[in-house]
């Protein structure tokens, strides 16, 4: 029962949320592939900064949606990655992205575990 809703509306909302959750699960595999590409680009002398910005944008999106569709742990990992990149700010350069790489690996582990379990 969803707070403040009659049975029909609650059922309608739960069905809608279930559909969104299914679509999120279907998107997980592509999201993982995309993160692996970015992980690889972090090694690239010419593309690492651009990859970091894209990584932050993807992590931000993931952070926004995950908790709402029942994948809070992925969301928390994504938030940590986003915050790490934000905290580096103007100090971001190639030598200090080890933490970024490490947090990205944690996020990927979490995503893969959830994909396997889904």
């Amino acid at each position: 029962m969803v707070h403040g809703l009659d049975a029909n509306s609650a059922a309608q909302l739960n069905a809608g949320l279930a559909r969104i959750r299914e679509r999120f699960i279907s998107s997980l595999s592509d999201r993982i592939d995309s993160f692996y590409e970015l992980l690889s680009d972090l090694q690239d002398d010419t593309r690492w900064a651009e990859s970091c910005a894209e990584l932050r944008a993807n992590a931000h999106k993931l952070h926004g949606i995950c908790g709402s569709v029942g994948f809070a742990a992925i969301g928390e990992n994504a938030a940590r990655l986003e915050q790490k990149i934000d905290s580096l700010g103007p100090d971001l350069h190639r030598n200090n992205i080890d933490d970024v790489r490490s947090l990205l690996n944690c996020l990927l582990d979490e995503m893969e575990q959830n994909l396997d379990a889904a």
């Binding site: 969803v2 403040g4 509306s9 609650a10 949320l17 969104i20 679509r23 998107s27 949606i65 569709v69």
Partner: peptide, 18 residues
């Protein structure tokens, strides 16, 4: 919102509440 799933989530939640 730029995220399609968030847009759907907002739509589903708002519609269910009238």
């Amino acid at each position: 919102d730029d995220d399609e799933l968030i847009r759907e989530l907002l739509l589903a939640t708002l519609e269910a509440h009238g």
